[in-house]
Design a protein around this nucleic acid. Structure first.
Lengths: 147, 147
DNA sequence: CCTATTTAGATGCAATTGCATCTACTAGGA
DNA sequence: TCCTAGTAGATGCAATTGCATCTAAATAGG
């Protein structure tokens, strides 16, 4: 059995703790401002990017790395909050199209500065420019080869 | 409002997707072998490290970055599976001491090679030695200053 | 056409998580 | 001692997640 090197283990534990710490503090910050969670933000952003054409739930699920039922229920909740609309597709009777409402656009816009400030504070301020470039490059080497 | 640089954003998204992908694939691998989840592994490892002295739940919670109630319930489940024992503390009537059972030790031991293989495959094989050192160093710069 | 497969999405039910609160015990004064 | 805070841990209840399955519609093969 091949054991990982100590560097590998160190990378793995840092990866986990860093991403969990950041996620937790961003979520906490959003919550103190009475705003929705990160998962909502991600969904709202993808839907906004899709523009007036909207986006199909199955596409969203791929971009957000969520399971199908998770996507379905996330959309339920976001729709209940009035941030998106669901419209039946005409040429495919199974599907629907998700679009952002003005309120959804607003919500994302309000969330962004808070989110952004945390990223700047937790990442940008801790790395020099060349370190940031290097880290970006190294992390992308660990990303799954696109399926 | 200060927007993050594109490097910052890139780091953040990679950080999230990489750690989620790795976590998901390790969990999946453990599950196909009929083994418990990563969170159990982490707990078992910390408890094992504590040795015969055992460990108090409040210490465990700090090391695992779990909320208090999460720790309490995780320990419930692990105990129900017979992997740990809970013993009342004598000099502090509120507390308890957690220790690993032989079965708990075995379980961790069986989980490790599977876990390890995934780490080697997903991290070690994708980085040169010097890249690994660099990545470890950069990630640790992002870690929360110890409270 | 007609049947078998596949795809998009929803949903019942169990397990887990989050939140708030509760109990029991300890510690620190007055 | 008595009262007040603080700490360790558990727990009721609501929200979320995971799993398996289900429905409806599209597509493929004969």
């Amino acid at each position: 059995m091949t054991n990982p090197t100590s560097q590998t283990t160190r990378i793995w534990t840092s990866l986990l703790t860093v991403s969990q710490d950041l996620t937790d503090s961003i979520e906490a910050e959003l919550k103190t401002h009475g705003l929705p969670k990160l998962s909502w933000y991600d969904a709202l952003l993808e839907i906004e990017k899709a523009g007036a054409d909207g986006i199909r739930p199955y596409e969203l699920k791929e971009r957000l790395l969520l399971p199908q039922y998770g996507t379905s229920r996330l959309l339920d909740r976001i729709a209940k909050a009035g941030l998106i609309t669901r419209q039946d597709v005409e040429n495919d009777g199974r599907g629907q199209i998700i679009r952002l409402t003005p309120k959804g656009r607003d919500t994302r816009k309000v969330m962004w500065p808070i989110y952004a400030a945390m990223l700047v504070r937790s990442i940008e301020h801790r790395l020099s420019n060349s370190e940031a470039v290097a880290l970006g490059r190294l992390l992308s080497k660990l990303a799954k080869p696109r399926s």
